[in-house]
């Protein structure tokens, strides 16, 4: 199935009781684009990413990811997305190698062991692959989480504050493996406005649950035509 847009969000809304968290969000991202999602705390960035990740059901509207409907083809959507949050989402009593092997098997990756080991080398965790994750630093947790999110070769990356806990070297890895990697379509919620120009080709700004702007750089606009 070919898709013009990697992510298509139409009139998306989310309400919890009487509280409206997202209100009529419209967003279309072409394949290969890299979009920074900005906005104040509580604006709805994390909720939008949670909906796109299939973790939260929308109240209204429609979402298509890689051409698949989020509501009716959720398993196909999950195959194609990689999710990285500000929490690393790792088993602390397993080792880095066991964590990556578990998620590789969960995603049905062929030859999971060589792939997991290759990631551990790239992420600088090879020498600590047999230690429990609980003894590793926060920065290493986040590095390993990058491996977890990429282990199944997703097409689309949904990132929520991905820089959390990373040192300068970790941020370089994040940039190289995720944010600047042309193979992916990236949508990343971030408060690091100083870094956006370094990796993003468009910026979507959310205020109080509404998408108030979506600015695409001139280069990206020209490339998409």
């Amino acid at each position: 199935m070919t898709a013009t847009f990697a992510i298509e969000v139409t009139r998306l809304s989310k309400r919890y009781g009487t509280t409206t968290v997202l209100d009529g969000v419209e967003l279309s991202l072409v394949a290969g684009s890299r979009t920074a999602l900005t906005g104040a705390n509580g604006a709805g960035k994390s909720t939008l990413l949670a909906i796109l990740s299939t973790l939260v059901s929308p109240t209204g509207g429609q979402v298509r990811i890689a051409g698949y409907d989020l509501q009716t083809q959720a398993v196909e959507v999950r195959r194609r997305i990689g999710v990285l949050g500000h929490r690393p989402m790792l088993y602390e009593d397993l080792t880095p190698l066991e964590n990556l092997l578990f998620f590789a098997k969960l995603y049905g990756v062929a030859n999971p062991r060589p792939r997991a080991e290759a990631f551990l080398e790239v992420l600088g965790l090879w020498s600590r692959r047999f230690e429990p994750v609980s003894v590793l630093s926060r920065g290493y947790h986040q590095r390993l989480a990058i491996g977890r999110a990429l282990i199944h070769s997703p097409e689309i990356l949904l990132l929520d504050e991905p820089e959390t806990g990373l040192d300068a070297e970790g941020i370089e890895l994040l940039d190289a493996l995720m944010l600047r990697e042309p193979a992916f379509t990236v949508l990343a919620a971030t408060h690091r406005l100083d870094r956006i120009a370094g990796w993003a080709d468009s910026t979507a700004n959310i205020e109080r649950g509404r998408l108030v702007s979506h600015q695409v750089s001139a280069e990206a606009l020209a490339a998409s035509r």
């Binding site: 299939t54 999950r78 949050g85 929490r87 690393p88 088993y91 977890r148």
Partner: peptide
């Protein structure tokens, strides 16, 4: 540990 969400986004 957030791993429940990590499993829920798996296909």
């Amino acid at each position: 540990q957030g791993t429940f969400d990590a499993m829920l986004v798996a296909p």
